[in-house]
Design a protein around this nucleic acid. Structure first.
Lengths: 223, 223
DNA sequence: ACCTGAACACCGTTCAAGT
DNA sequence: ACCTGAACACCGTTCAAGT
């Protein structure tokens, strides 16, 4: 029994104090990294904790629930969208913001799938504020203003979601299968099978910008 | 020991054979009912099995995975959208289909949250076929056709998602909280706080139709 | 204040076994 | 062919306890 002699006990000289303390900011960053790496719904509180070198239960000191964490991650991604200067010419300002918004979400392809949750974070609100400010400066008000705001928001988020879905389904074999299925059912899909729908002649970026410009044309034209 | 006398044994006369056999159709219907009742992500293979009076593992004879089941449920919901007759006047046909599409998804408020998954079911494809057919009959082709298809699809799905989010957050206290927060931060949200964004002066149905009509205006106007 | 360890009440899914 | 029962490998989250 040498254990009762202090000098003979071979223990770590200190309980190795945490090098980097856990913060909400670090947790969010790690969560985004984990989502980027592992993909959509493979984020786990335990795996996230492992990445941060803490116990999974330690996370709950900083965050109430996993859902809250996802909301924070989503708002953080939206925060990557640069907001044009408030003095921008309305149309080009709107265009820049909306193109950037979609790009930021597609840079984190898991993020559009989270859009089913309420979008009320500070970064989202700040960008919604910019959108409405530009619309107001274009002369919109009342019903027209309200509808234009929702139309633009819905369009961007819907497009991001659809495009992210296709990109996550990057398996070329799967895409070929879809194409083959549509072409094989030409009598059921006479238009789709002959219109170039399955040909992918244009990038989703091109198609988005083309559509966005048309939508802006009409919304900014006034009544 | 009366148990070795057949006539004295009181067992059920038959192993009560399944009254209604399990089918994929019944599973999908029950899943939608469960989702409608229990809400978004509270669907569980075990609870679904309980509703069908089978073991949870019995479901796996008919369906490979829970994700597959959700894909089937989503396509089933899209199937509730009436497709106008193929001879419809293009604009009114498109309008009817898209209004119906959004309405069907909002009737099952959990469904827009599933849109992050590939939309390739037969019901979705049939409706996409109709959309493109109407656009082609309006004279669209090439890039214009491809972009219009995606613009309309993105707009409808994005709007459905956003509206479903708000409706699921039906807690009036929560909505009041959002409103109070924006109004309290008037210097950060000068436009939002004064534009009526938080007033809800119009229904989401009105706003959607208003926006849809504008989008159709421009897309059908041609180059 | 911040983190660990053990524990609870669940999950989706597999698989051998029954009928 | 279709379903059950037991089991596996996980989950998110709570809570007492440590520092």
């Amino acid at each position: 029994m040498t254990d009762d002699v202090l000098w003979l006990r071979d223990e770590a000289p200190r309980p190795p104090r945490r090098n980097t303390p856990l913060t909400l900011e670090r947790i969010i960053t790690a969560a985004i990294a984990e989502l980027d790496a592992a993909g959509a719904e493979r984020l786990t509180m335990r795996k996230l904790a492992e990445r941060l070198e803490v116990t999974s239960t330690a996370l709950y000191w900083h965050v109430a629930t996993k859902e809250d964490l996802l909301d924070l991650a989503l708002d953080h991604v939206v925060g990557e969208v640069p907001v044009p200067p408030p003095g921008s010419e309305p149309r080009s300002g709107l265009r820049a913001l909306l193109v950037g918004w979609r790009a930021a979400m597609l840079a984190h392809p898991w993020s559009p799938a989270l859009l089913g949750r309420p979008l009320l974070g500070p970064n989202v609100l700040a960008r919604t504020e910019f959108i409405q400010a530009m619309l107001v400066r274009s002369g919109l008000a009342g019903l027209e203003l309200a509808a234009a705001t929702r139309t633009l928001a819905g369009f961007v988020l819907g497009a991001a979601m659809a495009d992210a879905t296709w990109r996550r389904l990057d398996d070329p074999a799967a895409i070929a299968k879809v194409r083959a299925h549509i072409l094989a059912s030409a009598e059921r899909y006479p238009t789709l099978s002959t219109s170039g729908f399955v040909e992918a002649g244009w990038s989703d970026d091109e198609l988005f910008v083309f559509g966005l410009d048309r939508v802006l044309d009409r919304l900014l034209a006034g009544t």
